[in-house]
């Protein structure tokens, strides 16, 4: 046999491969499984704080000719908080949502409002439904603090079949959070990290051991140009700080804690700031915080700034976020996250 054309063979094969590879497969709509199915996602982000809510979306469906969904339920390993207004606490939605052209949620009621007894939150569907996604909200109770919580989502169809799905475990943060306290110069100017509260001088005098920070606003006398701008404005200062940082402040008797303070900027925790930034301060951030060289004052604080704080007895570490400052009324709105270290 002559192998005269043997060198043309690879080229021919390559052409053949191209010709085969260029053929498009016709698209086919995937066939749904002929069974009752469910799926779940967690929608809420960030550390799981007590009194905050975890949010899930639980989807369940079966082929239309195989029956309808009768009920859905969620079992939490630790009972969630139930509020008098049901939608403020732990509940399973009795409405399914879709999005309209404007991006708004459009609700369709498919069941009666859910009932929660102990660990179990349940809805019974009142409308013929073969596919639905229901949202579940779990308000974290105080007793879950520092523990892990798991959820079992399940649904039952008209044939008595049940599907279920486990979610978690989710660690509940040991942090505490207080939002939107207002501190005002010369009135409510004393902050207790232990109580996560603000006090007046008279109140502070009654609990001097608990006062960790003093808020003050000062507008210093500016020297004529070209002297540099001298700014003090909003300040958070430890009672034991150098008096130069507490001008005109007469501390109540016994208020003398040397709190450690580290000034920060652009650390806009989403839970404290409630802004668009996807930053979350977690338990680990407090555990890893290095306060060995921290000072005891922070002056010239601006809105959306913050300070890391460690109490003098080192029992608490906190992050004080400044939501807003007001030079005119000499006050600022703060939100605090705190972790008890021991």
């Amino acid at each position: 046999m002559k192998l005269k054309h043997i060198y043309q063979l690879p080229g021919f094969l390559l052409l053949l491969i191209f010709a085969v590879a260029c053929e498009d497969d016709a698209y086919e709509v995937p066939q749904a499984k002929r069974e009752f199915q469910n799926d779940c996602i967690k929608r809420s982000l960030g550390p799981n704080l007590v009194n905050n809510r975890l949010e899930f979306a639980y989807a369940m469906a079966l082929p239309k000719d195989m029956g309808k969904i009768v009920s859905a339920q969620v079992e939490a390993s630790i009972p969630g908080v139930v509020e008098p207004v049901i939608t403020n606490g732990t509940f399973l939605e009795h409405r399914a949502y879709s999005t309209d052209g404007g991006g708004n949620d459009k609700a369709v009621q498919v069941a009666d409002p859910s009932s929660t007894e102990g660990n179990l939150t349940k809805v019974t569907l009142t409308r013929d439904t073969f596919a639905v996604t229901l949202r579940y909200f779990y308000k974290i109770p105080q007793e879950a603090k520092g523990q892990k919580v798991t959820f079992t989502f399940s649904a039952t169809d008209s044939n008595g079949r049940t599907v279920s799905m486990k979610m978690g475990p989710y660690t509940i943060s040991a942090m505490d959070m207080v939002l939107d306290s207002t501190v005002t110069d010369n009135t409510e100017m004393y902050i207790s990290i232990a109580d996560m509260a603000t006090y007046t001088a008279a109140q502070a005098a009654a609990i001097p051991d608990k006062i960790d920070l003093v808020y003050l606003y000062r507008a210093l006398v500016q020297q004529p140009a070209p002297a540099p701008a001298l700014t003090f404005k909003h300040a958070l200062v430890a009672p034991a700080a150098d008096p130069v940082y507490l001008p005109g402040v007469t501390l109540p008797a016994g208020v003398n804690k040397d709190t450690k303070i580290i000034k920060t900027l652009n650390l806009r925790d989403q839970q404290l700031a409630r802004l668009q930034y996807g930053i979350f301060i977690d338990d680990l951030d407090f555990e890893k915080l290095d306060t060995s060289t921290a000072t005891n004052f922070a002056i010239n604080l601006k809105g959306e700034a913050g300070v890391w704080v460690e109490t003098a007895d080192r029992q608490y570490r906190a992050y004080v976020y400044i939501n807003a400052v007001n030079d005119g009324s000499k006050n600022m709105r703060i939100s605090i996250k705190r972790l008890k270290m021991f």
Partner: peptide, 29 residues
């Protein structure tokens, strides 16, 4: 830079121009 990564260096305040003197811009100390 401070712990908040913002410059802590002061700057002189700028002096605007007058009819007899030119403007003096702000300068870092």
């Amino acid at each position: 830079l401070g712990t908040d990564f913002v410059s802590v260096v002061t700057s002189t305040t700028a002096i605007p121009a007058t009819s007899t003197t030119p403007a003096i811009p702000s300068t870092r100390n």
